[in-house]
Structures are given as C-alpha cells and as structure tokens.
Amino acid sequence: MKSNIKVFLKGIVDVSPLMIPVVPFGLIFGVLSIEIGFSPIETMGMSLIIFGGASQIVLLQLFSGGASSLVIISSVGAVNSRHMLYGAVVSEHLSDLKLLWKIIISYFLIDQAFAVSNEYLKKNKDKNRYFHLVGGGATCWVIWQTTTFLGIILGSAIPEKLGLSFAVPLTFLALLVNDFRKFINVIVIIVSGLVATFGYNLIPFKAYVIVAALAGLLTAMVFTKNKKKYE
C-alpha cells in the first residue's frame, strides 16, 4: 500500500493539468468582483466560503444585472447542486471514514478534483486512497485562493485586450471532453446550453440558469429511461 504522502502527491500531479485554465479564471473573478463593487474582504470571503468558481461567477453576473436576492441564492444553489451528485458518487469509497474526514473531503470535492479522483478511487482499493482527493482538492483550493487574491491586487493592471474571459468556458470545456463521447450527454449539454442562451433575455428575474439546469435534468431523465437504445 502506498503511503498517505505518495497518494496525496499523486492527487496533486493528476489534477495539475486542469489548473492551467483555472489561473485566469480566478484572476477574472477577483477583477470582476472588485469592479462590481465588492470589497477585497468580501471577495476573498466568497472564495473561502463558497469555493466554487462557476457559482461565484454566476453570483457576480446576476448581482451586476440587478437580479433579486432570491434568484441569486436559487441560481447559486442550482449551480452548486452538482456537488451533491459528486458526493453521492464517491460516498461508496469513503463509507469507512470518520465524520470529520468526510466534512473535510466534502469541502475539497470540486469539479477538477472529482474529475481525476473518481477514476483513481475506482481503480485503487487501498484504505488511504481518499488522500488522492484531498491532494487534488487542496491544490485547487490553493490555486483558486491565490489567483483570486492576485485578481484583487493586480486587476487594474490587467489590460482588457488580454481577453482573459475565455478562461471561464475553457475551464468547463476541459471537464466536459469525456462527456462528448456519449449521445445522451451531448443532447443534455446542447439542450441546457440553448435554453440558457435564448433564455438570457427572455426569462424574467434573470432565472435562466435555473431554467437551463432544470431543462438539462428533465432531458437527462427522459433519455436515461431508454439508455440502452441511445448508447
């Protein structure tokens, strides 16, 4: 059995390639948050407490667009609801852990860490395999907090023509690459994307994120009933 440190370092190595687009993503969040009117303490507080890049960007977009508190909270909750699925998937590998460790791991269970650690957990049965998830998640945490801070400090020095906004979709496209291999996944991505795009100006109260998520879930539910037919 590999030592805890080796498994931890393995998580860092495996998640590192996915950190490349996260750097400009974190810078963007720090810059936008200050420009919208949040203080540096509030901006760092969001990254420390929420620790979810997509939901934090959504929060800023809706806040700047004048959305109500109810819509903002609901949208952020909808975007972050995917973490419940992540938790359900990895729970079978962590059932023997103490509650404290489960709480720690749940905090670090974000998109990139889940993407690499889920495969590792499936292939390795050692009792300390959860250190891979801790290593990956901790790496994401350090990168995100550091880049958020740099975005706050250096935001005014970053020229608009640099085009850092490309990093937001790029980050999630990197995570979706494997999903394009299945017909059902592609249909769900297309449906939710179209609903969000066309609903941006049509759906009242800036609730397009919630509606798009529900449309994607409904589509997935319909198609998975005939899963064998489409795979």
Rank of each mutant, 00 (worst) to 15 (best):
L154P: 03
I143R: 02
K123V: 05
T146Y: 00
A157V: 06
L154Q: 03
L164C: 07
Q145S: 13
I152A: 05
L162A: 13
D126Q: 14
F131R: 00
A167M: 07
I153N: 12
G163L: 08
I143T: 11
S117N: 08
D111T: 02
K127L: 13
A157T: 15
W144K: 04
W141M: 13
F131A: 04
F166Y: 10
V168Q: 05
D111M: 10
I158S: 06
A138R: 01
I110E: 01
L121Q: 08
L164K: 10
A138Q: 05
I110R: 00
S165C: 00
V134F: 12
L150S: 07
N124D: 15
L154Y: 14
H132E: 09
A113K: 02
C140P: 00
A167R: 11
K127H: 11
K161D: 14
Y130P: 03
W144S: 10
K122V: 05
K123P: 00
F166T: 05
G135L: 03
T148L: 11
Y130K: 12
G163V: 12
K123E: 07
E160F: 09
W141H: 06
H132K: 01
W144R: 07
S106C: 12
F149H: 05
Y130M: 10
T148P: 12
T146C: 02
Q145L: 15
S156K: 15
C140S: 14
T139W: 02
I158Q: 02
G136L: 10
K125I: 04
G155V: 01
S117I: 14
I153D: 00
V142P: 11
F149A: 15
E119S: 14
A167E: 01
L154G: 15
A138E: 04
V116G: 00
L164I: 09
S165Q: 12
V168W: 04
G151D: 01
V116N: 08
P159W: 03
G137V: 13
K161L: 07
Y107C: 10
